[in-house]
Every structure is written in structure tokens, then in C-alpha cells.
């Protein structure tokens, strides 16, 4: 996985982005939302920020075992 496609800026190099954390399960309690992570080897749904670009918060789903990126959405607009 060398590039992510920002909805505003297009495909950009990975070092422009910062990974924040995996998205908590729906209805996770506050402790789980802060400390626990969803560790799946087939799909990972994550919060990222285009920190060194437009600074948009992104919702990325990708496969952490192959590096394939499935989708990048603006955070809050993911289905």
C-alpha cells in the first residue's frame, strides 16, 4: 500500500497521511472505544487524517494482510 486516494486531493503518497486508530465497533463502550482495537487480518476499518495535505479526516477500509485498499471516504460519509 503505497498511496491513498484522498476524496479532495486524489491519489497521494502514504507519508502525507497519518493513521489514527481502527474504527470502534458500533455501540462500543467508552473504555473499548479508547483502549481496545479491532484486530482482523482480512479487513481493517480505520480513521486516518490527510495530515500533511488538506487535513481532512478519512475513513479507510483496507486489507491489512495484502495491503489492498478497498475504499477511502471522508469521515462521516462512509456507508
Amino acid at each position: 500500500m503505497m498511496r491513498l486516494t484522498c476524496p479532495f486531493c486524489g491519489a497521494r503518497e502514504l507519508h502525507e497521511f497519518q493513521f489514527h486508530k481502527t474504527a470502534p465497533e458500533p455501540g462500543a463502550n467508552p473504555f473499548a472505544a479508547v483502549y481496545e482495537r479491532v484486530n482482523r487480518t482480512d479487513i481493517s476499518q480505520e480513521y486516518w487524517q490527510h495530515l500533511h495535505g488538506c487535513r481532512a479526516w478519512l475513513y479507510v477500509s483496507r486489507n491489512p494482510s495484502t495491503g489492498e485498499v478497498y475504499q477511502v471516504h471522508l469521515l462521516g460519509t462512509q456507508s
Binding site: 486508530k21 465497533e25 483502549y35 481496545e36 482495537r37 479491532v38 484486530n39 491489512p64
Partner: peptide
Amino acid sequence: GHTGAIGTMLGVPLPVET
């Protein structure tokens, strides 16, 4: 590195990222 996956297998979400 697969500690988190073991947590998923056992149904215990762990405070771990790989």
C-alpha cells in the same frame, strides 16, 4: 504480531495493534 488476531479468535478485543 498475531496477538491481536488471537484476541479476535477468542472473542476478547485486545488493547493491541499490529
